[in-house]
Design a protein around this nucleic acid. Structure first.
Lengths: 249, 249
DNA sequence: ATGCATTTGTTCGTATGTATG
DNA sequence: GCATACATACGAACAAATGCA
C-alpha cells in the first residue's frame, strides 16, 4: 500500500514558469510537511508517480534527487523511496535515563520487559562488571519506544551479590532508577560508553521494526555508584538511521 | 590461501586423557598467540580442519565454539572463521588528533590524501559549518592507516573565506593541525560529535579493506577555535569491528 | 535478477568411554 | 558386575548466508 492516491490532489501545470520537477518536488514536500506521508513510509514508486503526474520518469527523479539532497527522503536502489525519519539524538552524558531522553524530544516514552532473570555471567559481561565469568548476575532485557516506535533494545546486567533484591525490585517497577533505589543505590553515573555497529539479528530487526539491511548502533556502557563501584553493565542496540548518538564534551 | 598447512605440526592424540576438541582448541590458540594466524586472517574452513586433524566436523566446531566464546575468533556463516582483530578504541575528546590516537595504541600512523580542492558546500556541510549552502569550502579527503591497516576515511571541510591560504597550507603539509596554524588557528577543539552507522559504498569498502557486509561507523563533528568560531566540519568513516568509539565523560 | 558453489548452522541418530553408586 | 548419567565423537542430511559469475 502506498499513499500514491494523495498525489492526485497536486496537479502540475506546464508552461507555468515553474519547472515541472520543481512543482513535483514542492507537492511531495507539502505531503511530507502535512503528515500525509509520515516519516518512515514508502512513497509511490517512480513509475507510479510519473503516471499520476503524467510526466516522464526522469522528471520525477529530478524532483526526488532534490528532496534526497535536502534529506527529506531516502532513495534505496531496488527497494524504493522512503520519507526520512526524524532522528532521535541520543546524548551520552553521565546521567542518561531512557524516559528523560525520549521526553526531551517531546515524545512519549514507553517500554516492555522482554526478559528478567538471574543467570551466570558470560565473559564479556563479567569483564564489564569486573567479576569472574560465571558469577551470578540479574539480566533485564527491555525494548524502548518513543511514541510507539521502537528505538532501543537494551540488556542491563546487575551483579546479584552486590545488589540484593534487585530482581524483585525490577519485577515491581519498570524504572531502573527506582529499582536501584530499592536496592540501596541512590544515584549512579555512566562511567564509560563504547560504541560500535553491526548488522541486526533477525529477531532484533523484527523487534525494532527496521530493515535487515541497515546496521544497528551498539553501545556498551558501565555504570557506577557514587563511590565508583560498578553496579551495572549494559548493552544497547539502536536502529539506524532512526537513532544517532551525540557526544558533547 | 589459508594457513591450513601449519596445522600439520599439531597432531591430535586419541585416548590421551584430553578431549580431541580441547587439543584442537589449544593448537589453534597457539597459532594465534604465535602470530602464525595473525589478526584478521581467515582460518581454514571447518571441512579442511576436520580433514587435517582427521576428526569429525562437529569436533572442530566444538573447538571453534570455545575460541569464539573467548573472543579469539569470529565465525561468520557463509564466509568462514577469522582471527579476531585488535580493536582500536577511538576516544572522542575535545582534542582528538589522528596521529596521537594511533600512537596511543603503539601503532605507526600514516595517511594518504585522496582529494584536496575548493568547492561549493552542499546543504549538510553548510549546516555543519553554519554557512549558507553553496558557500566556498576547502575539502580534504584522507585515508588513515595504523601500521598500514586502513582505519579511517575522513572528509574535512574548512570555510574558505574564514581560513585564507588553508588549501595551499594543506598541500604543503600532511598535518591538519599544522596547516591550521599557518592559517592563523593556534588551537582548536571538538565541539560536538554525532555518531551513526551505515553500509559502506563499494569504494569505501575497498579503501578500508573491509567486507561489504559490515557497517561503518560514521562520525560528524564540528571543530571550533578558542573563540568558539566554527573552523571545520568533518565526516569520519571507520570500519567495524576494527574500530570502536569510546566516550568517557 | 538468477543460479551456483562455498561455507557455516542445525538437527537428527548412533556409538563409545568414563565416572558414579 | 550392572545400571545410569554424561561428555565425547562420528555420520548424514538439510537450512541459511555469502560471494561470484
Amino acid at each position: 500500500m502506498t499513499p500514491a492516491d494523495d498525489v492526485l490532489i497536486h496537479p502540475v501545470q506546464r508552461q507555468a514558469g515553474v519547472a515541472l520537477w520543481r512543482q513535483i518536488a514542492t507537492a511531495l514536500r507539502e505531503d511530507i510537511a502535512n503528515g500525509i506521508s509520515p516519516p518512515g513510509t514508502q512513497l509511490a514508486t517512480e513509475a507510479e508517480m510519473s503516471a499520476r503526474f503524467a510526466v516522464n520518469r526522469h522528471t520525477v527523479r529530478r524532483a526526488l534527487e532534490e528532496l534526497s539532497r535536502d534529506g527529506l527522503v531516502r532513495v534505496e536502489q531496488g527497494r524504493g523511496t522512503f520519507v526520512a525519519e526524524d532522528v532521535l539524538d541520543y546524548a551520552v552524558e553521565a546521567r542518561t535515563r531512557f524516559s528523560q531522553w525520549i521526553r526531551r524530544h517531546n515524545k512519549e516514552p514507553s517500554g516492555r520487559v522482554l526478559r528478567l532473570q538471574e543467570m551466570a555471567a558470560e565473559q564479556r559481561v563479567a569483564r564489564g562488571l569486573g567479576m569472574r565469568a560465571g558469577s551470578r548476575v540479574v539480566l533485564l532485557e527491555r525494548i524502548g519506544f518513543a511514541d510507539d516506535r521502537p528505538v532501543s533494545l537494551t540488556r542491563h546486567y546487575f551483579p546479584a551479590a552486590r545488589l540484593r533484591g534487585i530482581e524483585e525490585a525490577l519485577h515491581a517497577t519498570p524504572s531502573i532508577t527506582e529499582a536501584l533505589r530499592k536496592a540501596g543505590i541512590d544515584d549512579y553515573l555512566r562511567q564509560q560508553t563504547r560504541v560500535t555497529a553491526r548488522m541486526p539479528t533477525p529477531t532484533e530487526a523484527d523487534l525494532l521494526r527496521m530493515a535487515r539491511s541497515r546496521p544497528v548502533l551498539v553501545t556498551e556502557s558501565v555504570n557506577v555508584d557514587r563511590l565508583g563501584t560498578i553496579i551495572e553493565f549494559s548493552l544497547g542496540c539502536y536502529p539506524t538511521p532512526r537513532v544517532q548518538i551525540v557526544f558533547e564534551p
